[in-house]
């Protein structure tokens, strides 16, 4: 078997460029995905006892609508492959815009489409993590908070939030790693992330072993960094 270290050295700059892009898409994706996920996760249980007590008056129908919208979003994303979501956003969505409006030259950059796809995709799974953790907060703690006379917002911010967040960390770590690896699928819309860089170099020099080994190690390093940062956060939080 011939294994040329020089092949790796030569392809390293391009691969690092790809890794950098992978990292950027991932970070933007999970930050946006967290925002999306917290909103949709809380949305799915809006107006239920998991967030204090059931609302009165006009807030009751509003909360039902919010629940349906959130559930629709989560189920749509979970029920379709991420690769289809990316293709839809990149190829189909601009056509849809063109058909519905008069905007002729509507286009989404491949990178933008990639980031948005990860945000919405991760958001749906994070929503389920958020919902599960919030629902698992012991009801007695909510009653203890409410009986002190605090508002629903304070209850969510200072009691439900911190307790639920502690439980979210392990599944979040899982989802962050999945999202990072999902960026490799954006090869289909031509984003120059790590997998695509590997593919292109491969196509020119046919050194599969060196290239895919290096690519794999780069992914492994990035996922390890993600996992370790989450473990760090987990350790820093009080044990209870």
């Amino acid at each position: 078997m011939d294994f040329e270290l020089s092949v790796i050295v030569e392809s390293l700059p391009a691969l690092l460029e790809g890794a950098k892009l992978t990292w950027i898409i991932t970070i933007l994706g999970i930050v946006g995905g967290m925002v999306c996920g917290v909103l949709a996760g809380l949305g799915r249980i809006a107006g239920t006892e998991a967030l204090g007590e059931e609302p009165h008056g006009i807030f009751k129908p509003i909360s039902i609508v919010i629940r349906y919208i959130s559930a629709g979003y989560v189920e749509t994303i979970r029920g379709t492959p991420i690769i289809v979501q990316a293709m839809f956003l990149y190829f189909a969505f601009p056509m849809l815009v063109k058909a519905v409006t008069d905007i002729e030259r509507f286009r989404i950059e491949a990178l933008t489409a990639a980031v948005i796809t990860i945000i919405f995709n991760a958001g749906a799974y994070i929503a389920e993590i958020v919902r599960g953790s919030v629902v698992s907060v012991h009801k007695g703690l909510l009653e203890a908070g409410m009986s002190l006379g605090i508002s629903r917002f304070q209850l969510i911010m200072y009691i439900i939030g911190p307790i639920a967040f502690r439980r979210m960390i392990p599944p979040l770590g899982n989802q962050f790693i999945i999202s990072l690896k999902d960026t490799s699928l954006f090869i289909v819309i031509g984003v120059g992330e790590l997998t695509r860089q590997g593919q292109e170099i491969m196509a020119s020099n046919f050194r599969a072993l060196e290239i895919w080994l290096t690519v794999a190690i780069m992914y492994l390093i990035m996922t390890t960094v993600l996992a370790m940062s989450l473990r760090h956060i987990e350790r820093k939080m009080k044990i209870f």
Binding site: L141, A144, L148, I163
Partner: peptide
């Protein structure tokens, strides 16, 4: 909420906030 400000409650299962220390639990209200 005004009612609850005037009516405190102590539960069978204590229900202390597990992420807060004793003094933080008491200072919370």
């Amino acid at each position: 909420r005004q009612v609850r400000l005037e009516v405190g409650m102590v539960f069978q299962q204590f229900n202390l906030f597990p992420h807060l220390t004793a003094v933080e639990n008491v200072a919370f209200g």
